[in-house]
Amino acid sequence: MAAPLGQYKMVLFARTTDKEILRGAQNGGIVTALLSYALDTGIIDGAVVAAPSRSKPWRGKFDPWRSEPIVAMTRDQLLSARKTGYNISPNVMMIKEATRSYGLDRVGIVGVPCQIQGVRKAQLYPIGMRGVPDKIALVIGIYCMEVFPYQSIVQIVEDHGGVKMESVEKIEIGKGNFTVVTERGRTIQIPLNETRDLEQPGCHVCLDYAATLADISTGSAGSPAGWSTVFIRTKIGDEVWKRAMQAGLFETKPIGQVEPGLGAVEKLAVEKITRNKKTLEDRDFIGTKGLRNPYITT
């Protein structure tokens, strides 16, 4: 891995000017605004996003804390998928569905870094991905430190936090805490080192934080509250971003002006990569034989 933040053409702070999107957004509403714009302008025909689970009810509605991938083909579907879920949503599962069953020619996909790795592998090594590689039109990555199995989220919220899942209004991971905000406004903070053991183990061998393989990657790290840090990485990302800017979709701030800025993103990326490289090294010494390392080094 060369740079912890990967290759990029441009990095800036942004938030959407679309009030409807912003109202329900985790941060600056970047992902939903970009996909909604791409859908409107025909850059994509649909997008794979993590949406609240339709299989299990929560407060009589779809469950936002139990994510499921859907192929969103309308703005309403995209709006339903706002906010971060922090649990496992197997988004890559739906890319072949999107191209084969839904018959889409231009697919957008949102994912955390490991999922973007899956998408890029599907393009370069499309072993079982017929019809997929050439139909990926826009790949949006979200920064990710780790995710939790849904059962771990329940355990953290209910056992550590002492509140029922039904009362959760927002979950946020950042600044060293797993933060739960309840319906009536109570905020509970659980230090992340207490929840570390409940994380998905597969996250501990992941060497990407800032979704370095996406066309555009974004997240809250480094940005002022209500804004997002956005990396424009590829030619496709650049074109889509420019068009969206021309359409007045985002307001931006240069990254130099505002604290904490790029340094904060880099710090988190280095922290994750360093910790997980150590996990990979430690795996070599489990038993006397060690465990298989999936990464090819030359």
């Binding site: 890559v92 599962m93 490991c114 592998k121 992941c206 999936p294």
Partner: peptide, 8 residues
């Protein structure tokens, strides 16, 4: 312990 549930 390598799976992260991407769905590939």
């Amino acid at each position: 312990g390598l799976c992260m549930g991407c769905g590939s």
